[in-house]
C-alpha cells in the first residue's frame, strides 16, 4: 500500500523544470501528434534518439523514465508479439514447423517451474524470462516428434510483421516517455494550474475550468491521505482478527466491508471539514481568485515553442511529401 506513488514528480533542476507548465502541456501534445504522423521506421528511430537527446539535455535520468515505463512493459510486449505473429505480409523471414506434444508440454511445465523458482533472484528477472522464452521455443521446434503429438503448425515470421512491431513499439515508447517527462518535471499543482489556464477559453461554452482545476488538485492532494487512512483502518481491523490475506470468500467480503465503511465515513467527514476550512478562509465558489504564483512565459518557453513548431511542421511535411 505504501509503495504507490501518485504523481511521479521528482524535484530537480534543468531545462524542463524551468518551463511554464502550459508550454510543456502543449508541447507534449503536439510532439505526440507529430510522432503519430511519422510513417517509416527510420523516422521514428530518429524521433526516439531526439527524445533521448532531449532528456539528456534536460538532465533527466533515463533510468528514472525507464522505471516509469516498467508497468507498461507488459503492454509493450503484447503489442510487439501480436504484431510479429499476426501480421502476414511481405517476405517470409522464418518458417519453423512446431510440434505440440506430450513431452514438449511436460518440458514447458518443468521450465516454467524452474523459472518461477529462480524468480527470487530479482536482478536477473528480464534475463530469466528471455531464457524461458527461448527454452519454450526450442522445445516446440527441436524436440524430436516422439510420444503423442497434439498439433503441428508452422511458426512463421514475415518481414512486415517485424517492421510494424518495431515501429509500433518505438512509437509507443516515445509517447510514453514524453508524458513521463511531463509528469516527472511538473508538480501536480502546476499541472492543474496549467490545465486550468489552457481550458479557460472553454468558459464561453459553459465549462468552468477553475472548478475543474480545483477538483483535480483536491483529489490529487487527498489520494495519499486517504491511502494512509486506509492503511490505518486495515491495521485496526487486522488487530480485531480481520485477515485480509487469508480466509474464505464470505469472510473476505465481510472484511472488505469492515474496511470500506470506515473509509467512506472518514472521507465524507474530511470533505466536510475541508469545505468548512475553505469557507472560513472566504472561499466562494465561482468567484475569481488570485494566486501566489502567477504563470509567466520566458525565453525558454519561446525556444521550446519554436522547436515544437519546427518538429510539427517537419512531421507534416514528411507525411505530405510522397
Amino acid at each position: 500500500m505504501k509503495n504507490i506513488v501518485i504523481g511521479q514528480y521528482a524535484p530537480g533542476k534543468g531545462f524542463f523544470y524551468r518551463l511554464d507548465p502550459r508550454t510543456k502541456i502543449i508541447t507534449v501534445v503536439f510532439l505526440m501528434v507529430a510522432v503519430f504522423l511519422l510513417e517509416s521506421i527510420l523516422q521514428v528511430s530518429i524521433a526516439l534518439f531526439v527524445t533521448l537527446f532531449l532528456m539528456i539535455i534536460g538532465k533527466i535520468s533515463i533510468g528514472r523514465v525507464a522505471k516509469g515505463l516498467r508497468p507498461l512493459f507488459v503492454l509493450l510486449l503484447f503489442t510487439f508479439s501480436f504484431q510479429i505473429f499476426l501480421n502476414r505480409e511481405g517476405a517470409l523471414l522464418l518458417s519453423q514447423p512446431m510440434n505440440i506434444g506430450l513431452y514438449s508440454l511436460l518440458g514447458v511445465l518443468v521450465l516454467t517451474v524452474l523459472w518461477r523458482l529462480l524468480a527470487r533472484f530479482k536482478k536477473f528477472k528480464g534475463l530469466l524470462f528471455l531464457f524461458w522464452l527461448a527454452g519454450v521455443y526450442a522445445l516446440f521446434a527441436y524436440l524430436p516428434a516422439i510420444g503423442p503429438i497434439f498439433k503441428v503448425f508452422d511458426f512463421e515470421i514475415y518481414e512486415s510483421g517485424v517492421v510494424t512491431s518495431i515501429f509500433v513499439v518505438v512509437r509507443l515508447l516515445i509517447v510514453i516517455s514524453l508524458s513521463t517527462v511531463l509528469t516527472l518535471t511538473t508538480k501536480p499543482t502546476d499541472l492543474t494550474q496549467g490545465l486550468e489556464s489552457l481550458l479557460r477559453p472553454l468558459k464561453r461554452l459553459g465549462v468552468n475550468s477553475d472548478d475543474f482545476a480545483l477538483i483535480i488538485s483536491i483529489s490529487l492532494r487527498y489520494i495519499p491521505t486517504i491511502l494512509d487512512e486506509a492503511n490505518k483502518i486495515m491495521l485496526a481491523q487486522a488487530s480485531r482478527g480481520a485477515d485480509f490475506n487469508e480466509g474464505k470468500l464470505v469472510e473476505k467480503v465481510k472484511q472488505i466491508v469492515s474496511l470500506l465503511i470506515p473509509m467512506f465515513i472518514i472521507a465524507f467527514k474530511r470533505s466536510e471539514d475541508l469545505a468548512d476550512a475553505m469557507e472560513s478562509r472566504n472561499f466562494v465558489p465561482g468567484k475569481p481568485r488570485t494566486r501566489i504564483h502567477e504563470l509567466s512565459f520566458g525565453m525558454t518557453d519561446l525556444v521550446t515553442a519554436i522547436f515544437t513548431v519546427l518538429v510539427f511542421a517537419g512531421a507534416i511535411v514528411l507525411r505530405v511529401l510522397p
Binding site: K232, I233, A236, Q237, A238, S239, R240, I265, I266
Partner: peptide
C-alpha cells in the same frame, strides 16, 4: 493478535 489486543487511537478507524 487475539492474545495481545490492540486498541487504536481513533475509534472511527474500526
Amino acid at each position: 493478535r487475539r492474545k495481545v489486543g490492540l486498541v487504536f487511537q481513533f475509534p472511527e478507524y474500526q
